[in-house]
Amino acid sequence: MIAVMNNYSERNEFTSYEMMTIAASRMLKSDDVCFVGIGAPSAACNVARLSHAPDITLIYESGTIGTAPDILPLSIGDGELCDTALTTVSVPEMFRYWLQGGHVTIGFLGAAQIDKFGNINTTIIGDYHNPKIRLPGGGGAPEIASQAGQIFVTMKQSLRSMVPKIDFFTSYGHGNGYNDRQKLGIKTTGPTALITDLAIWKSHPETKEFIVTNLHPGVSKEDVQKNCGWEVTFGELVTTTPLPSAIELDVLRELHRRTNASHRRL
C-alpha cells in the first residue's frame, strides 16, 4: 500500500493496482465507443462507466454492444455482459461490421510484452517454433490494434513485460516509430497512451515513443526506470497523477467486492 497524506481525500491509502486502474479509467469519455480487453482494461472501462463516463459504449469481442455489467466478467463472454447489453451480435458481425467497419473509437488492451513504440506480444516467449512459454495468442487484438481509432494500453511495469525488443509482433503499434504505421497502410492512430502501476505515458507526436508525462503519487523517476527494460524518456514537465478520489476508490472496490462474491464456489 502507498500511504499518502491528503486532506481532500477520504481515502488516504490505495494500492498501485488501484492507482493504475483509476488513472486508466480517466482516459475515457462518455462519448467513446470502446472495445474492451479482458483483465485490467475491463476494470478500468467499467470504473469509467460507473463514475465520470456514464454514457460510454463498452463493446466486448463476444458480440455484446453497449454492455453495463454489475460485476466484472471473468471471460469476455460472461452472461452478465449479454444480459446488460443494448444488443448482442454474432462474432463475425462484431469483427466485420463494427470493428473493421470503423465504428470503434478506442481499443483498450493489455499486454504480456510491450516495447517503447507500443508494439505488443501476447503470443510467445522465445522462438515461435520452439517456444519457452506458449501464451494464449492474439485473439481479437491484432485487428483491434489496427482498426480501432486509437489504442490505450494498461499493464503492470516490470523488466519482463516492458522490453527493448518484443519476442513476437502479435499486435502492431508504431513499429520503429515515426510514420512506420502509415507506411504499412494502417490508417488509424495507434497507441497513444500507456497507463502502468507507476506512471502515465503518452506517445510522442513525432517519434511515437512512449514518454512519461505523469508519475503516480509516491513514485520516483528511478522507480519507473528500474521497472522498464528500455531507457525511459521523461517529458519536459512531469506532473503527479491526481490522487484517486473517494468516489473512484469506492466504485472500484465495490466492483471487485461484487465480482469476488459472484465468482466464489457456491
Binding site: P92, R96, P142, E143, S146, R181
Partner: peptide, 27 residues
Amino acid sequence: SHAAMANAYEAGAASMPCALFKGYLGA
C-alpha cells in the same frame, strides 16, 4: 486472429474457398 477465424467460418458457411478481410497489418 479472431477476425481471421470469424471471417473464415463465414466464408465456409457461404461456400467460399477463402475469406477476404482487412487484417494482419504488421502482425
